[in-house]
Amino acid sequence: MSTATLETTRVVPTPAPRTRTPRTGRVTLARVIRSEWIKLRSLRSTVVSLLATMGVVIALGLLFAGVVSGRIGGESLGIGAGSTGDPVGASLGGVQLGQLVIGVIGVLLVAGEYTTGMIRATLAAVPRRLPVLWGKTIVFGGVTMAAMLVATLAAFFGGQALLGEHGVSLFDSGVLRAVVGGAVYLTGVGLLGLALGALLRATAAAIGALFGAMLVVPGLFPLLPSSWNDAVGPYLPSHAGESFMAVTPAPGMLGPWAGLAVFAGYVVVALAAAAIMLKRRDA
């Protein structure tokens, strides 16, 4: 007779695989700024456009300084002893065209997201919305200010080298303020474009509004009665900003610091309006 031996096998349960819980965190302004910085530097067209703006400011500044000094064209246009020429203004002549480029970049930074629909993903990640606008403002404003300061300094030093003995020093009265003021002005125009892009959400409309405010309206004011021009003209955004970037503001214009205050007021009001509409409207 055989005896069946039952052997019991101890079964050791296999532990379930550990799953890594995705890291989640609050949406903070610092994280939004980091996200906007990644988007800005990864968008090749924006980087190229910023470099193009720097090139315009520097190249035209050198061209104007060369023409005014007589090194280009062979005949001086008024910089010298006893003249009323402005050597700093000649070096910063490229700012006027540069403002158009930087303004368009600011518009596209926001309006472009509305056009492609990418803004929906952005606002889904940041439901409170306002940090998106502040993040774009901080990143774009900081990058633009740094880039334009390099451009205005390069234009100034290159222009003064072309002007030779008729040039001025960076540390002469009002010169440093004017050179830095050129970068501040360009940055402000870029932020105005950004605010208009957020307000109007359409690239063509925002660019048209920016150009109208900065170029068309100031060009029409000399055609109006002189009393209107004298009373309102100095407070236009372009005229107020130019007062800050001039060593000696033109007669009838605001003083440098008053001009900066008025110009900054336009930027703040435009951004505030953009913030209000961003909260009230759907994406």
Score class of each variant (00 low, 15 high):
159 G>F: 01
173 S>P: 02
199 L>D: 05
229 N>V: 13
183 A>I: 09
252 G>F: 04
237 P>T: 00
233 G>Q: 02
243 S>P: 08
82 G>T: 10
210 L>V: 09
191 L>P: 03
96 Q>S: 12
135 G>R: 01
78 G>C: 10
233 G>T: 03
54 M>T: 01
8 T>F: 06
231 A>K: 00
33 I>P: 01
233 G>V: 02
16 A>S: 13
190 G>V: 07
191 L>R: 01
21 T>C: 04
1 M>T: 13
148 M>Y: 09
162 L>G: 04
231 A>T: 09
117 G>I: 14
108 L>C: 13
150 V>I: 14
26 R>D: 14
1 M>V: 14
163 L>S: 02
50 L>W: 04
90 A>E: 13
283 A>Q: 08
27 V>T: 09
154 A>V: 10
189 V>Q: 00
273 A>L: 15
278 L>R: 00
70 G>P: 05
118 M>W: 13
209 A>L: 07
164 G>Q: 03
43 L>I: 12
120 R>M: 07
239 H>W: 12
156 F>Y: 02
99 Q>G: 08
205 A>S: 15
203 T>P: 04
265 G>E: 04
98 G>F: 07
147 A>D: 05
244 F>Q: 10
254 L>I: 11
19 T>I: 11
81 A>N: 06
44 R>V: 13
205 A>V: 11
49 S>P: 05
170 L>V: 14
